[in-house]
Nucleic acid binder design. Structure first.
Length: 427
DNA sequence: TCTGGGGTCCTGCTACGA
DNA sequence: TCTGTCGTAGCAGGACCC
């Protein structure tokens, strides 16, 4: 909360997380430029070592561009399940310090340590011990920001991070503390782009107002900012620029939507091909809905064409769904509204309006068809839990060399180089 | 030049019922 | 019965985050 007397919010950010996990398992690569991400022509960089960043490589950069900038870098395809495993070890250490842990992604989290101070000491002391524990117990380095509010803690962890320079990687301070009365002095010189919520579009609008730094934004009347950015975003960013952030650390956030999308190695033009992909996507989404024990009423189809133009089509169903056949039917109806002739680059399915799963109002249609699916779905989940995701799946997805189901562990950063689902190795 | 996949949140528009 | 207003739900798209 703004004005809190002590810096008790920690933002912990693992340094080059995916790359660091790879180096943990392959120490012979230390000191070399290493890039984790999609290996194919349509992939992107998920993480780059500080040695690779010297060449200007950064996350979200196209893989082909990264390869051009540093052909001798080691390119790795990425192993989502391994990163999730290490992330769980790190989060367990955080939860050992305080129950108030809000993970933002696999590699970063907010911690509220106000309640742990009496036992473990002030926030900055907890931050340094936490850093040591993560290094000792997991073997990875992290950067920690300590402040009175979440967004300042996040900016502080950025200030504590290692940096890439022309001479090579430069160590960071590891922990950066912003005392409450230093907040504005820390914030105001920063470029306005540093604020959480200012992307390219908002930056362009702010620059038109002559705003370059956070201090410039803070100095404007709030009405001027609202006029440029709209009521919600304008008020929010103006408050942040003045160091005001009332958001609490919230552990156990429930997902509001669950989805799956996939970019194809080549654009697809035929309904039959897209229908087959849709079967895989809906099967994967349904399985994840059940794993989270939720079901949702709104089904959204996302289609990206070859020219990158992207549309969404959605429908809200009378009853929540968490089973593949019902989800497939809804998504298929939406796909029928789309003309694939120009070439479809990406297809996605997501479900929102989530509520508790497993409880459902039966309809007359259920008696005729889907009711048996509830039990079948449970059986499928059990088989996958025991034998792996590829042990069972829709018949439409079988190929001569076996079943290819979709899941988070595959294609996280774009289609592989050879157009199959098999992982490939670059570099 | 090339732009993944997982999300959240906001805005503008339209339809609809009170 | 007709018309205008208002709130809400649904839908599509955009911006942003890691």
């Amino acid at each position: 909360v703004s004005g809190r007397a002590r810096p008790t919010v920690l933002h912990v950010d693992m340094d080059a997380f995916f790359v660091s996990v790879e180096l943990l398992d392959r120490p012979e690569l230390r000191g070399r430029p290493v890039v984790v991400g999609g290996s194919g022509d349509r992939g992107v960089v998920a993480a780059a070592s500080y040695e690779a960043r010297v060449y200007g490589i950064h996350s979200a950069m196209a893989s082909v561009q990264a390869r051009r900038r540093c052909p001798h870098a080691v390119f790795l395809p990425g192993r989502y399940s391994r990163y999730a495993e290490v992330s769980e070890q790190v989060m367990a250490i955080f939860r050992d310090v305080t129950p108030l842990v809000e993970p933002l992604s696999l590699d970063e989290a907010f911690l509220d340590v106000a309640g742990a101070e009496r036992l473990l000491g002030p926030g900055p002391v907890i931050a340094r011990r936490l850093r040591e524990r993560v290094l000792d117990e997991v073997g990875l380095t992290c950067s920690v920001g300590v402040a009175a509010t979440k967004f300042v803690a996040k900016l502080a962890s950025e200030a504590a991070k290692p940096k890439a320079s022309l001479e090579g990687p430069v160590l960071g301070s590891g922990v950066h503390v912003v005392e409450a009365d230093e907040t504005l002095a820390f914030l105001h010189p920063l470029p306005v782009r540093a604020l959480w919520g200012v992307g390219p579009a908002t930056l362009a609008r702010l620059e038109r107002l002559g705003v370059l730094t956070v201090g410039d934004l803070a100095a404007l009347e709030v009405e001027v900012v609202v006029g440029a950015l709209g009521r919600s975003q304008g008020r929010h960013l103006h408050a942040l620029a003045n160091g005001i952030d009332a958001r609490a650390v919230v552990p156990d956030r429930r997902p509001k939507s669950i989805g799956h999308e996939e970019t194809f190695p080549r654009d697809l033009h035929r309904r039959g091909e897209l229908g087959r992909e849709l079967t895989g996507l809906t099967d994967a989404v349904a399985a994840r809905l059940r794993r989270h024990e939720v079901a949702g009423r709104t089904v959204t189809l996302k289609v990206r064409f070859g020219d990158f133009h992207t549309i969404t089509r959605s429908v809200t169903l009378p009853e929540p769904v968490d089973e593949a056949p019902a989800l497939r039917r809804a998504a298929s109806t939406l796909l029928d509204q789309v003309d694939p002739a120009p070439g479809v680059r990406l297809l996605g399915v997501s479900v929102s309006g989530l509520g508790p799963g497993g409880v459902r109002q039966l309809t007359l249609d259920d008696a005729a068809g889907d009711e048996g699916w509830a039990e079948a779905s449970r059986t499928i989940d059990e088989i996958r839990a025991r034998f792996g995701a590829d042990a069972i799946g829709p018949a439409a997805l079988t190929r001569a060399d076996g079943l290819r189901t979709k899941g988070r562990h595959r294609q996280q950063w774009g289609p592989p180089a050879d157009g199959t689902d098999a992982p490939t190795r670059g570099g």
